[in-house]
């Protein structure tokens, strides 16, 4: 016998996750457009690994397998991780990162709904700490480097670590716009000169800024369909904008402007897809503002003053730790206990 309410909105975890996956598509399409199809290989690889690991863990934990495999949450983790690491990363890195994310960061914490940290970001953190060199194999956008790998050659590299005879890895890949900026600023080059390099486009990295735009589009779709609330993206991007703006105004020669920070690195992906992960983010609206503002601050600090080129992943993980406390201190006032009334 079941009890009221007897009706429910036809919605499900699986449908929500599917919508998030769909929202990633514009960004992925642009990714392929500018950087070639290698990213699809790592997304596929990550997806298969995620589903396999998920099924294995569910089996080990003696949980029903099909409903959970169909909830699309493992796929989402896989996609986010694949989009965060270089497309030319060797296959075993994708597998290790994804398996770690699903097995350790998700299932050892109790599976769907119980993980304290964003699994994709845990996977990313493991990879960047363990394999820092491979994590810099970013493909250059079309027309940036002298020789480009064909798709079969890329596959060869991903799966067999084999490059065509004539090429060296350095000629084929390049650092990210954020990384390049950091390196050149260290060499005391003026900002204007650095940004004139071909790797930079309209606001940030050539090509990568368009991918970020794609993620922004998908994010707006998520906002419009009420999958996510405005609090996290607004507070994250707002904080990043204000911080970058202030530093840029004070010393434009050494600090990139707010738009650069918005469209470089994982800002957009983080603002709309990573920080908004409901499981590992706060449940109160005020808490979301604090959480995302904190992540924005940390991201900026890590990017500008820290040792890693991008800070979204570590900012997310650090703020994940604070979530229970943030939620505890941002409990909304309940009906009738709000004070001001007519």
């Amino acid at each position: 016998m079941f009890f009221s309410p007897l009706i429910s909105k036809s919605d499900s975890v699986s449908a929500i996750m599917l919508k998030v996956l769909l929202a990633l598509l514009p960004g992925i399409v642009l990714y392929v457009w500018y950087f070639g199809p290698a990213i699809l290989v790592s997304i596929t690889l990550a997806s298969l690994t995620a589903l396999g690991t998920e099924a294995l863990m569910l089996k080990l934990r003696d949980r029903p397998i099909m409903p959970f495999l169909k909830d699309n949450s493992a796929l989402l983790t896989a996609w986010l991780l694949a989009l965060s690491i270089p497309p030319l990363a060797p296959w075993w890195m994708v597998v290790v990162g994804t398996a770690f994310a699903i097995a350790i960061a998700k299932h050892l914490y109790g599976g769907l709904g119980n993980n304290m940290f964003n699994p994709a970001m845990v996977g990313y953190a493991v990879l960047i700490i363990s394999f820092p060199a491979q994590m810099t194999h970013w493909i250059a956008p079309h027309g940036m480097v002298i020789s480009e790998l064909t798709f079969p050659q890329q596959l060869d590299f991903i799966f067999h670590d084999v490059l065509p005879n004539s090429d060296t890895l350095d000629a084929l890949t390049m650092a990210t716009p954020l990384d390049t900026l950091k390196t050149h600023l260290h060499l005391d080059q003026p900002m204007r000169q650095i940004l004139d390099m071909p790797i930079y486009g309209r606001f940030a990295g050539h090509g990568s800024e368009m991918v970020a735009l794609g993620f922004l589009l998908g994010g707006l779709y998520l906002l419009a369909s009420r999958i996510i609330s405005w609090h996290i993206p607004a507070a994250f991007l707002g904080t990043l904008f204000v911080l970058a703006g202030i530093f840029h105004l004070v010393d434009p020669a050494h600090y990139a402007g707010p738009l650069f920070h918005w469209f470089a690195g994982a800002s957009m992906l983080g603002a709309f897809f990573i920080l908004t992960d409901p499981v590992s983010s706060p449940t109160t609206n005020n808490g979301r503002l604090i959480y995302a503002a904190g992540a924005g601050l940390l991201t900026y600090l890590i990017r500008v003053f820290g040792g890693f080129p991008d800070g979204v992943a570590f900012a997310t993980l650090l703020m994940n730790i604070c979530v229970p406390l943030i939620v505890l201190y941002t409990q909304p006032k309940v009906f009738g206990k709000k004070g001001s009334q007519p």
């Binding site: 929500i16 409903p67 709904g113 449940t283």
Partner: peptide
């Protein structure tokens, strides 16, 4: 009219419940 409820999944803390709660509670908590 009232189809049996679909299988129950774990709470993902999406807070849709909090969004609709007329008493301003945090149902997920």
């Amino acid at each position: 009219i009232f189809p049996p409820p679909p299988p129950v999944m774990p709470c993902i803390r999406c807070t849709r419940c909090a969004d609709v709660c007329p008493a301003d509670l945090q149902p997920q908590d």
